[in-house]
């Protein structure tokens, strides 16, 4: 702790940002990818990366706030909520442009309902959040399957257009979610709520004794996670031409992976939003790179798993000084 006396230089401060490495890695993978194509499809790769990263970042933000609450806090109901919100919203909108806003509200309401249910289980049954969100995900998934059965309903054309539109090669949705991420970063760093979440994650007992409203803060985090999952389901069904029953599947693992790779501490109390974007781009670009080089799906999965384990082991080295 001797170097704590001298203020670190701006460059060292930047280097100390845990999210920086996700961007460095994403950029490196991007370069390696377009090297293969001789730089021809660089723009397309970037556009695709932003498009697909967008959806995982939305759920990643919610998951991150939950994980920040400390050990044992994780939301396993995200995929089911995505599926339910997507199914309910497309059915209610019934391809009519006039219902777009109603559909959005319904999707968010689905998320809110799941969030309330999740937290209700945690509090009333006094069970760990993992078990609570696990069991509620079973129910939600089933509801989504039962509700969304039958023919696939297309999203309203205007919603499909919006979710796939681009400005100068940049997806409009990605721009919106970058703004959303910026807002959430401010919420995390500069509002009372963000401080409360971070305090609880570091030491829940100390937080209570410092006057932090622990119950309300945790409730809000689980709400947020579920509502963002609802939003993701809504947008995803617009983007991919309707909802499908497996559309949420990959987002459980992805949302947790983003939090870890983005440099947030899985032990809680120390999170950042920018890392989510870096990690999402990185994960998608790795898959693209392996694709470009002709590797099959199996190796892509292997690489993703190895990356997550490598990142968590590397992060543990940093914290051995504890």
């Amino acid at each position: 702790m001797s170097d704590a006396a001298s203020p670190p230089s701006p460059l060292r401060r930047l280097m100390a940002r845990p999210w920086l490495w996700a961007y460095v890695a994403a950029f490196a993978v991007f370069i390696v990818t377009i090297l293969f194509t001789g730089g021809r499809s660089g723009g397309e790769v970037a556009t695709a990366a932003f498009t697909f990263a967008t959806f995982s970042v939305i759920v990643g933000i919610g998951q991150m706030f939950v994980v920040t609450l400390g050990p044992g806090n994780v939301d396993l109901s995200i995929p089911a909520t995505i599926t339910l919100a997507g199914a309910v919203a497309t059915k209610i909108m019934d391809t009519q442009d006039g219902m777009i806003l109603v559909g959005l509200l319904v999707a968010l309401a689905c998320g809110a309902a799941v969030g309330i249910f999740n937290y209700g289980l945690i509090i009333l049954l006094r069970i760990p959040p993992i078990i609570a969100t696990l069991s509620s995900s079973f129910l939600v998934q089933s509801t989504a399957i039962a509700y969304g059965r039958g023919i696939r309903i297309k999203p309203p054309p205007a919603l499909a257009d919006f979710t796939t539109s681009q400005v100068f090669g940049m997806p409009v949705l990605a721009i919106c979610v970058i703004l959303l991420a910026a807002v959430m970063e401010v919420v995390l760093r500069r509002t009372l709520y963000g401080r409360w979440v971070t305090a609880i994650g570091q030491n829940i007992r100390a937080a209570r004794l410092a006057g932090v409203p622990v119950g309300r803060t945790r409730f809000a985090a689980y709400m947020m996670s579920a509502v963002f999952a609802g939003l993701c389901g809504y947008l995803l069904s617009g983007f991919s031409g309707g909802s499908s029953l497996s559309m949420g599947e990959e987002y459980l693992l992805t949302s947790i992976a983003l939090v870890v790779i983005g440099g947030s501490s899985v032990a809680g109390g120390n999170s950042n939003v920018p890392g989510l974007w870096g990690a999402a781009l990185f994960l998608f670009l790795v898959v693209t790179m392996l694709n470009t080089y002709g590797f099959g799906a199996g190796l892509r999965y292997l690489a993703t798993g190895a990356i997550i384990i490598a990142v968590i082991v590397a992060a543990s080295r940093r914290r051995t000084a504890r």
Binding site: L253, V260, Y301, L302, I308, I312
Partner: peptide, 29 residues
């Protein structure tokens, strides 16, 4: 590994789930 580095098992096994899935697909596409 989980004991030595005091790692959260949730994240490590999450990574392993990708690894097993990848190996399965390699064996049986």
């Amino acid at each position: 590994l989980i004991y030595w580095r005091d790692l959260p098992s949730i994240v490590v096994t999450l990574g392993m789930s990708f690894v097993w899935l990848g190996l399965s697909v390699v064996i049986l596409p």
